[in-house]
Nucleic acid binder design. Sequence first.
DNA 1: ACATAATATATCGTGCACGATATAATCAGT
DNA 2: ACTGATTATATCGTGCACGATATATTATGT
Lengths: 150, 150
Amino acid sequence: MDDKTMQPLLQHMLCLDLYAANQAVHRVYKPLLAPLGLTYLQYLVMVGLWERDPLSVSEIGTRLGLESNTLTPMLKRMEAAGLITRRRDPGDERRVNISLTAEGDKMRAAAGEIQRCLMEATGRSEAELLRFQEDLRGLIGNVKRAAEDG
Amino acid sequence: MDDKTMQPLLQHMLCLDLYAANQAVHRVYKPLLAPLGLTYLQYLVMVGLWERDPLSVSEIGTRLGLESNTLTPMLKRMEAAGLITRRRDPGDERRVNISLTAEGDKMRAAAGEIQRCLMEATGRSEAELLRFQEDLRGLIGNVKRAAEDG
DNA sequence: ACATAATATATCGTGCACGATATAATCAGT
DNA sequence: ACTGATTATATCGTGCACGATATATTATGT
């Protein structure tokens, strides 16, 4: 008989805060990435490749929670922009390996400062962020399990 | 000289968890909203209207962090689906008032159960969710401020 | 070796997001 | 009353998201 259950209010909905958090993060990243000609999602792909190169489309997909229907067009745009190359894996012709170009690799130099800006934007210490991240990941795990089980 | 600063890793990036949280929430809502013919964002508009009716386009925009470039097409789809009406405000012809149709108002009945499912999906108590929401809102406030100040 | 299933990517259509811009209505200051 | 600024919505183009589907390649079982 709780009002919040019977009559949802936007003010109380956590999902709206998660949505707003993404919007806010997006808006901090945008001006930082604009000089590099990267979108937010393209930057996440780059971070993945700076860490390990090459990655297949599905390996990128696992990291970002996306599939080829989203990734293929995006990776083609990044290829057209000269950031990455797309080549069929000789060992398994179903796979497409994504690698950084020299230009894409050079952008790595800008990443440290971008991350510093983001950390600073949160106004939280590294320890506070870690604790929050742990909490958030627990919640994500629960929600994902609920989504799968129906 | 921290590695996490110099060389960002996807594993450490909070923004990726926020992104994943939205994906997960979206996936829980989708099957619950499909019977109503609503998308996730359309549902949020409905929640706003169940709370207060009418709302202008910009009032909806304030609540969801969106502007007419996103809302106008979406509201037109909702109008075509018979969920809402769009009428110029007689007192200020610049504004467009959005109101629920009888059909849209009836959907209110399904909202309680949907919210119950979502709460349950988080696997957290109401008190835990409130604490998390407070923490998240603090973080959003900081990030928004950083985005505005540049 | 061969038929079948599973896997990896690509394509298509619809619905957000959002910067840039356009248009019309209202407001403010003279 | 008039001009310029402000406000509210709409339009356009590009880039995600994602369900559904198609195609090609590899793996599996007989």
